[in-house]
Structure formats: C-alpha cells, structure tokens
Write a protein that binds this DNA or RNA. Structure first.
Lengths: 244, 244
DNA sequence: GAGTGGTCTAGACCACGGG
DNA sequence: CCGTGGTCTAGACCACTCC
C-alpha cells in the first residue's frame, strides 16, 4: 500500500497519515456508522498491511479530532453526536451557577429561502441558492436563553422542511437522516443590542446587550454545512472557553 | 523516581506520565528557562533511565500542552511567550477584515488594592490580601479596541508597581521577572453595556454593547495567577473560537 | 557527515471489560 | 478466561538542520 519512495520528495506524507486518510474515508462513505464498533487494531493492521503501531498512530490522531472514541478492554467506536461528551463539544453557553444542563427548544419559524451573499460565502454556495431557514428559542429551566437562526443548504438536506419535530440536538438528525457528520466548527463572537424581535422572544428590553455567536459548522470533508447565528442573554449564563 | 505507592487506591500512573511530571518539574523549578534548548531524547533517556520511546511520549504530551516546541533536526525547546504562536494563543480578538495584528497599549491606572471577595475566589487568596491593579486601553491601528483591568496577587509579584514601562505582552514580563509561566487560561464571555468610563476611553456611546471577557490565567502548577477583565468594542473585531 | 526529531516495525507485558 | 486497547522497549531507517 506504500507508494511513496520519493526521490526528490516534494510531498512526503507519513504512512500513518495516509492510513488515517484511508480510515476517515470509511467514515465519509458511511462504511462505518456513528456509534459502531470498528475492527480491532490487529485486524486493521492485517487489512491495511502495516504494523499495529502505525494503525495506532492513525487511530490516535482520529481520536484527538473527536472522530473516534477508544475504550480500553472494549474496542474503538465511531463518535456519535448522542454521546454526552460530544453533545457539549459544540454548546458552550453555561449557567453562571455551574449546573450544565442542555436547553429545551421551541421552533419559531421554518422556511425555505434564498442564500444572501453572506450565506453563500459562509456555506460555499452561489448567491440565491436555496437554503432551509430555522429560527428557534432555546431556554434553560423555562428561562429564555437565546434565539438562533440556522441556515442549511437545501441541496444537501432534501426534505428538511418535512421533518415534523426537530430534535433538540440537530447534529444527531443531520447524521441519521442525511449522513452528514459535523466534525468541527468555527465561531465568531460579538456583542450586539437586542432588536425588538429579540426582546419579544427573550423577554428583555430592546437594546439589551446580547452575545451574538456566528458559527459555521464543517463536515468530515471540511466543507461548510451549517450557518448558525445565536443571540444570547448573558445575565444568568456565559460562554465558556479554555485556552491552552 | 517512582514514588507512587498508593495504600488503598490503586492509582496507577503510566511511566511516561511520571516522566512528564518530572520534566515539568524542571520547568517549574526554572532549571529549564523559556527559549532554552533542552537535552536530546537520547540524553534524557539516559538521565531518567527509561527508553527513548517513553521519553518521546512524555515530550509529546508536553508539546501538546504548548510547554515545549520541537524542531526536527534542531532539538526540543522550552516554549516562550515571545514566540508568535504563543503570543496569539491567549489573544483571541481579531479584526473582522482578517489582518491579525497585536494591539498597542496605554496604561490608564496602576494601583495597589485589596482583593475583593470575587478577586479572592478567582485568585485563591484571602479577601483583603494585597493585589496589583492595572487598567489599560488597547488599540489596533490607533482605533480603541478594549479596556482591561488586570489583577495580580502582590505576594507573587514583588515590585510590580515599580516597573516603569509595562510591555505590551505582560506574560513575557511575568516569566522573565518573576519566573511565572502562564500555562493555560479559562475565559467567561458576556455581553454588557458600556459604562460612562468605558465610553470615554473607547470613544463610543454609553450603553454600547461590549464583549466582556473575564479570564483567569494559571501557572505550570495550575495555580491561578492573574485575573483579567476586558471590555471590548466589537464593531470592527470579534472573538474567534475553534471547536473540534 | 553528524546529530536531531519523526516514522515504522515487532514483540512483550499490563490494565480493563465482559463472558 | 479471552480479547481489547495502553504501555514500554529496542532497533532501523527517514527527513531536516547545521557545520
């Protein structure tokens, strides 16, 4: 399987990286589904034709990217959006008093719309292409926390508008229904003033300072999949970040 | 070198972790200074009495925590706050148009004060203990970006008030002058309204929404060292976060 | 060419989970 | 008990840097 042997070596790629790409391919192609147990290191080493140590480096790299979960004594599993660790991987708003609970949601609007230039740039589409638009209110213990707007390219999410009950954690739905795995996301935070609509939904005064989170989420192939703008009350909660 | 010998709890710790702790100790004790070249893997393996592979795992773990920087063909170096990568590790406000530049600073106030209960809790002090208090305005291309207040425990930063010119990057100063290395930080973000003082410094209207970043920075021994509250204009810049 | 970190292999043993 | 991933070792070779 090794086809480097570069003389003047311009694009050298370590074997374990090539193996990793090959294994990620199995995730992309849906050969390995979220939650599934994948073959053991020994078995993979046999299949791919490299040593167990090289397989291990590839699996470790994928584990570091939260694509896999390894459990000693049990095996290696494909990460799934239902895992509690993954659940909070993308949800960084936590109540000030500490208790981390997942918010419930209420749909405010669902629509089919045309991508604005901003949407198109963020989602790598042509301006005017169809997008699904969802607006919802999320609360913790019945106290409104944030309103958010989610934009999805209609081309990749056929029938999204027909889904009756949108689950609280939509990334699980993306995975189950359309085979789209969210691998990473990029966020930009700003402080903005609440519009009248924001204020009405959140039960605060107009012009109340809100934390605006603009997120672009990417799939396994690093293509943008979702654009989400959340506007959050921060009187009882905050956005938590760890810098290392 | 092995001194775990747990009575009841079977606290098993892998060898490479014990080695890592031992090497981190050398950083804490100042035996290895920021920027310095440390011994090669082979030499360390000989010193510690384990194989090169085990040393490597320890060094890799430290590199993952940004404590070391490894350069193929040259050696392994102690990370230093002057490195450009480290510089931006703790500075996440970037201009919307992309150009990442480090802001200049102007000192507004420097004082010795008593820790409030909040300061004491954050910095693990007794309420009323002495702290150094610094307030400064930071701008990018002469446009005010944020005002921030930095609180340091006076006990660990003797003579801080005598430092004439505070450098832009204070973490380098902490390291050189007091041997304090900032290893990680924890941030909480909220949206707040600009006070009259904020507005005066930032050149904006009172009640303008500001992004408030409350940071606690920790040293190599995981003890809190600095409490910093920054209030940022976000009309031309944003806080960037990557979720994986 | 000598020395560094980076990769790759192979084998032994350990800790964990579940029959 | 077995099979899993996790650790530890030892040695060979590769890519990079500097003299």
């Amino acid at each position: 399987m090794n086809e480097n042997a570069p003389a003047t070596t311009f694009a050298y790629k370590p074997l374990y990286m090539q193996v990793k790409d090959q294994l990620v391919r199995r995730l992309i192609d849906g050969e390995w589904q979220p939650g599934q147990l994948i073959p053991s290191e020994m078995e993979l080493a046999r299949q791919v034709g490299v040593s167990q140590g090289t397989i291990r480096k590839a699996l470790d790299a994928m584990t570091a990217e939260n694509l896999l979960i390894r459990r000693q004594g049990r095996g290696t599993f494909v990460a799934s959006p239902e895992e509690s660790r993954i659940l909070f991987q993308f949800f960084r708003m936590v109540p000030d008093d500490g208790e981390t609970s997942f918010p419930q949601s209420r749909i405010l609007k669902r629509d089919r719309a045309r991508a604005t230039r901003r949407d198109a740039r963020a989602l790598d589409l042509q301006a005017g292409e169809a997008v699904w638009l969802t607006e919802r209110l999320r609360s913790i213990r019945d106290k409104p926390l944030l309103v958010e707007t989610i934009r999805l390219p209609a081309a990749r999410f056929a029938g999204f508008g027909d889904v009756a009950d949108l689950p609280n954690n939509v990334y699980g739905l993306y995975s189950q229904r359309w085979g789209v795995t969210i691998a990473r996301a990029s966020e930009r935070l700003k402080a903005v003033a609440a519009s009248e609509a924001d204020a009405a939904h959140l039960g605060c005064a107009t012009h109340t300072p809100l934390l605006e989170i603009t997120r672009v989420a990417f799939d396994l192939e690093n293509k943008p999949v979702e654009l989400r703008v959340s506007r959050c009350l921060t009187d009882m909660a905050h956005y938590a970040a760890e810098l290392r």
